[in-house]
Structure formats: C-alpha cells, structure tokens
C-alpha cells in the first residue's frame, strides 16, 4: 500500500512532470543529432535562402550586386523579419506537423497509452525549435549583415523581451496548428505551407509594411504576428523615421505581450479539445 502510494507520488506532481518534460526534450534533441544530414542541410538551406533574397533585393538597388553591404536599414528590416519568420516556420513544422508524422509512423497512439503528460510531449518539441532555430537565426543574422549591410543593433534588452513574447505566441500558434493537423490530417501539410505564405505576405517579414497595398495593410493590422515583426525590428533598429509602422510602440508591445501570454493558452486549449475528440472517435492513429 505504502509502496503503491509512493509510486503514484513519483508519477504525479510538478517534479515528475518536469522530469518527463526534460526526458522528452532530451529525446527530441537526441533524434535531431541522429540525423546529421538534416542538421547540416538545414544550416545550408538558411544560408542559401539568405543569399537568394539578398541578391533579389540588390537587383533593385543602384549598382546591383556590387552594392552588397551598403544599406544598414534594409539589413535590419530583412534580418529581424527573417528571425521571426524562421521561428514561425519551424514551429509550424516541428510542433504542428510533427503530430502528423507520429501518426504516419504509427507512434502517436502508443504515446497516448503511456502515463506521461501529453502537454509535456507537445511542449518538448519546443526544445528543438529553441535550440536549433535559435542557432540558425544567429548564423543567418551574421551572414545577412555581411551581405546586405551592417546590422543596426539598438535596445537589445527590450528587443529580446519582445522576441521572447513573440516566440511564446508563436509556440501557441504551433499548438493550435497541431490541433488543426489532428483534424485535417494530410491536408495539414498544405495548411502549414499556406500559413507560412500568408505570414510572408501579410506580416511583411522581408519588406516594410509600407510596401503593401492599403487594403492589405488593413488585414495585416488584424494579425498579432504583424505587430511582433514590426515591434521587434523597429526596436532593434532604434526606431528610425517611420518605424514602427502599424501603431505606436507602446500599443504594439501591449499587443505582443497579450499575444505571448494568451496564445499558448488558447493553442493548448484547442489542442486538448481536438485530442479529446480524436480519442472519442478513435481517430488518433488514422491517416
């Protein structure tokens, strides 16, 4: 009896939950390093994307490719937008679409048979995104600043706080997307691509919001991620003339903070709902 109680205590409580989360995050990181080609390829991919976008932008400048390294404002605009983009993109795939991958490989149902926390399982996927995408962001920022121009680097503490809140909100989007993937199954891949491209267009990570037509800018203002991009890059660029573009910085930080706090809760609630529905219908392992 005493032994049973002790075992139950070991399996429950915050310490057990944290231990399970740490083990799951470690498992995700171990899997990541077991695929060295993927590891190196994703690094190479970021470098090529950066070069392609840089060369494309330079075609519009006087002097073209010879003009590389000249514009500091363009560098800040593109580099800081790219950081948010890469985090969102990786979150959609590693948190959201990974659920689908487990379904395809037939391991999702087995995960649900274990007594471990399902939320910890979802949250552990964030570890890979934080470690790997964080590293990629730093490297791409360095490369881009070499190619496009010296990176403006102001208000680092506030910029880091805005980025942290933006990432928290982005992870919430990842949880919500995982819920959507459970519902739409194979169409989740299309949905991930769709969200990525909607973000690229409406949240303007690679160009200023002033480049968008007026009617599209109205739509941009309805998306909290737009404020994350605008607030983060404006702060890091030291608020040059015309920035932030969507609202005064105080308002933008308020929106980003609300997004960072509420979106993970909303995302997890949606995931839980969809998970319960899938379990009731017996469709956890369907694909």
């Amino acid at each position: 009896m005493t032994a049973n109680t002790t075992q139950t205590e070991i399996l429950r409580g915050p310490a057990a939950w944290l231990s399970a989360l740490a083990a799951m995050a470690w498992k995700e990181l171990t899997i990541m390093v077991r695929y060295p080609v993927e590891f190196i390829a994703s690094f190479g991919q970021v470098f090529v994307i950066v070069t392609v976008l840089t060369l494309a932008g330079l075609m519009f400048s006087k002097g073209g490719a010879d003009n590389a390294g000249a514009s500091s404002q363009t560098a800040g605009l593109v580099v800081y937008g790219f950081i948010i983009f890469i985090f969102l993109s990786d979150t959609l795939w590693t948190i959201g679409y990974n659920v689908r991958r487990e379904q395809k490989q037939g391991t999702l149902e087995q995960l649900y048979l274990s007594p471990a926390s399902k939320f910890a399982s979802l949250l552990s996927r964030v570890a890979v995104t934080l470690v790997w995408t964080g590293l990629l962001s730093v490297c791409s920022a360095v490369l881009m600043s070499v190619l496009i121009g010296t990176l403006p680097f102001h208000n680092v503490a506030l910029g880091a706080a805005i980025l942290a809140l933006a990432l928290s909100g982005t992870f919430g989007v990842g949880f919500a997307f995982a819920a959507l993937t459970l519902r739409v199954r194979e169409a989740g891949q299309t949905a991930a691509n769709f969200f990525q491209f909607v973000f690229m267009l409406l949240c303007a990570p690679f160009f200023p919001f002033s480049g968008l037509p007026d009617w599209l800018r109205v739509v941009s203002r309805l998306i909290p991620l737009s404020y994350s991009v605008d607030a983060f890059r404006s702060t890091m660029m030291g608020y040059p003339n015309g920035y932030p573009e969507l609202a005064p910085i105080g308002v933008e930080i308020g929106i980003v903070a609300a997004f960072g706090v509420l979106m993970p809760l909303l995302g997890y609630w949606l995931y839980k709902r969809e998970e319960d529905r899938a379990r009731r219908k017996g469709s956890i392992s369907d694909y």
Partner: peptide, 12 residues
C-alpha cells in the same frame, strides 16, 4: 514568393 523581392524593391 515573387512578391517578396518586388515589395522590398519598390519600398526601398
């Protein structure tokens, strides 16, 4: 995808 450099180029 083509709109990205277009919008950046036009804006800068």
């Amino acid at each position: 995808f083509a709109a990205m450099p277009m919008l950046l180029g036009r804006a800068t």
